[in-house]
């Protein structure tokens, strides 16, 4: 698999630093799952973080800190909760433990499946599935939209996007993605914006038009 489109260096740095919001973190982690280049760079950045950690001056721990931890060593960690979602391949394991909504029709040939995040995030995450030949109009959003292709492919002015490819849209981008022939295109989408949950479905239905 040749991956041609990657997250920006800023985004990978924020991933390594742990300062991405949850929705964006999921999109980058999904990409890194197949991209040796980006995961190698993030590992390098984590080593930089390690150098930073080693150079920090120590702050004295509370007097009983070690004793308290020693007292807890034999306690068992809590078992991971929740069912594993494995309907769609290509998602990182931690994402598959999140709650997935149902596939919902949002327009001709296009279905959406929301992923429920365990924490508040300004970014909403969902799977988007479109049949070959679907032309999607770029909907407007006030902020970033990150897309990682899981299967199938689409193409727009920015190039060809196949499995593992990472696409970034913002208010300046006016792409019209066209789903490539062959199989359904399934993407993980992390979208920031001011859409409200109550009006979500209606607002989402507008942008998808089949030609």
């Amino acid at each position: 698999m040749t991956i041609r489109h990657h997250p920006s260096d800023d985004m990978l740095q924020a991933y390594a630093a742990g300062t991405l919001d949850e929705g964006q973190r999921i999109a980058v982690a999904t990409h890194m799952r197949t991209c040796a280049r980006c995961s190698g760079w993030v590992s390098a950045l984590e080593q930089v973080g390690a150098c930073m950690l080693e150079r920090l001056p120590p702050t004295a721990m509370s007097m009983d800190a070690l004793d308290r931890v020693l007292g807890r060593l034999s306690a068992l960690p809590p078992p991971p909760a929740g069912a594993i979602f494995d309907d769609v391949p290509g998602l990182p394991a931690f994402v598959r433990r999140y709650r997935f909504g149902q596939w919902t029709w949002v327009g001709p040939g296009v279905h959406l499946r929301p992923i429920e995040l365990p924490v508040d995030s300004p970014t909403r995450v969902f799977l988007l599935k479109a049949v070959p030949g679907t032309r999607m109009l770029q909907h407007s959003h006030t902020d970033l939209e990150l897309t990682c292709v899981l299967s199938g492919a689409f193409r727009h002015q920015g190039g060809y996007f196949g499995p593992g490819d990472f696409d970034l849209g913002d208010e300046d981008v006016e792409h019209q993605p066209l789903v490539e022939p062959g199989e359904d295109c399934i993407c993980l989408v992390a979208m920031q914006g001011k859409l409200r949950l109550s009006g979500l479905l209606g607002r989402l239905m507008q942008p998808f038009v089949r030609l």
Binding site: R33, V42, A93
Partner: peptide, 10 residues
């Protein structure tokens, strides 16, 4: 576990 990303070999 919510942070266990998977990474391909370098």
């Amino acid at each position: 576990e919510a942070f266990a990303d998977e990474r391909p070999p370098p």
